[in-house]
Amino acid sequence: MYNRNHPSRRYTYIKAIILGDSGVGKTSLMHQYVRGTFTTQYRATIGADFMKKDVDLGDGRAAEVACWDTAGQERFQSLGVAFYRGADCCILCFDVTNTRSFENLESWRDEFLIQVGPRDPESFPFVVVGNKIDMEGKRAVSQKRAMEWCAAKGNIPYFETSAKKDINVDEAFRTMVRNAMDQETETDIYSEFPDPIRIDAEDQETQGCAC
């Protein structure tokens, strides 16, 4: 996360990663969020795709959100390091009609945390999204079950969305961006001054953690 040479320091660049099994609707979510469109013509994502959107949070803060849509097949996780680097927040996405995709959230989350290595894994701004609620009749993962999982993982916000019908998509992304920016203001305390080379750099760090 860095400020894009903007005088007001309010315009922040946020890198968001969308993770989840293949076919849960990651690309659809991103397109719905960024462009407000949905089609049935999406192709399977190979590697990763990328789109950005300027967001005004309405409280005087604005951000440029770079959404990274990743490939869902498990073996692409091994490319993660390149894509996840510098991520500020993450959407964990599953398909409410597919139990397996829900069960895999755990490993997506763990893998992500290992590769990104954030300072405080417990408070990393995740958002969990249960997509495809327009197919209510085929639901296989109950809201309760999903919420329990989110609560157990450090109160991750949970949203049920439909990228097709545009339900809750914006809310989910907005929450994620807000949380990411809240984190930023916390870390800003330490990054107010450029880091000089210090011999006692270690001390500096312990100070940081103590706060």
Partner: peptide, 11 residues
């Protein structure tokens, strides 16, 4: 896994 990509290959 193959099945999930069939319709998304050349839509």
């Amino acid at each position: 896994i193959i099945e999930r990509d069939i319709s998304r290959c050349y839509p």
